[in-house]
């Protein structure tokens, strides 16, 4: 790599930090009782994901991940949390049923994890002989404006319709007090 001392170890440590941030944030997001902590866990998870995108040679997507997920999606969810009363209800009824439900959820999660990792680790992946481009921001911009221009326009339309729909749905039923 470079001639900086211990560069390999520093890179490996930063990679492990990104993986740990992603996994820890996901666990906080799924397991916390208070929903606002879950949103913070989602933010931490997305920051870790941005680090992983950086390691996957895509700094553009890393920046977009932080901009869209941490900056827009999580802040929007925080607004939703503030406008409604969101904490998980206390365990009041049928404790054995709730425990059974939790056990079933854990089993489903474990099954999905082992099935998907077995599929993706055992797949016959082939490394391509040649690359069409280098995956840089310039290549992304060229592809967005030539091959994928229709999809690009359509997604802007989807976002516009989503904004209007959100306004209409959230506005109906609002009364002056």
């Amino acid at each position: 790599m470079s001639n900086f001392p211990f560069a390999d170890y520093i890179t490996g440590a930063i990679f492990c930090l990104a993986v740990g941030t992603t996994l820890g944030g996901a666990l906080i997001a799924a397991l916390s009782t208070r929903i606002i902590r879950g949103v913070c866990g989602l933010m931490i998870c997305c920051i870790g994901l941005a680090g992983l995108y950086w390691f996957l040679h895509s700094p553009f997507l890393a920046l977009m991940e932080i901009l869209i997920y941490v900056g827009a999606v999580c802040v929007t969810i925080v607004f939703g949390v503030m406008l409604s009363e969101t904490d998980e209800p206390a365990q009041e009824k049928q404790r054995s049923f709730a425990a059974l439900w939790g056990l079933g959820a854990v089993l489903v999660g474990l099954g999905v994890f082992f099935a998907v990792s077995r599929l993706s680790l055992g797949g016959p992946w082939k490394v391509p002989a040649a690359f069409a481009n280098d995956g840089s921001v310039q290549a992304i911009g060229l592809a967005l404006l030539t091959t994928y221009s229709l999809a690009f326009e359509l997604i802007s339309l989807v976002l516009l319709v989503a904004i209007l729909g959100a306004l209409v749905i959230a506005r109906s039923g609002r009364t002056k007090e």
Binding site: T22, L23, A26, L27, A29, A30, L31, C45, A105, V106, V108, G109, L110, V112, F113, V116, S117, S120
Partner: peptide
């Protein structure tokens, strides 16, 4: 795979 499993669990 872990993220997918945690998401489905949640």
């Amino acid at each position: 795979a872990f993220l997918l499993a945690v998401g489905i669990y949640g």
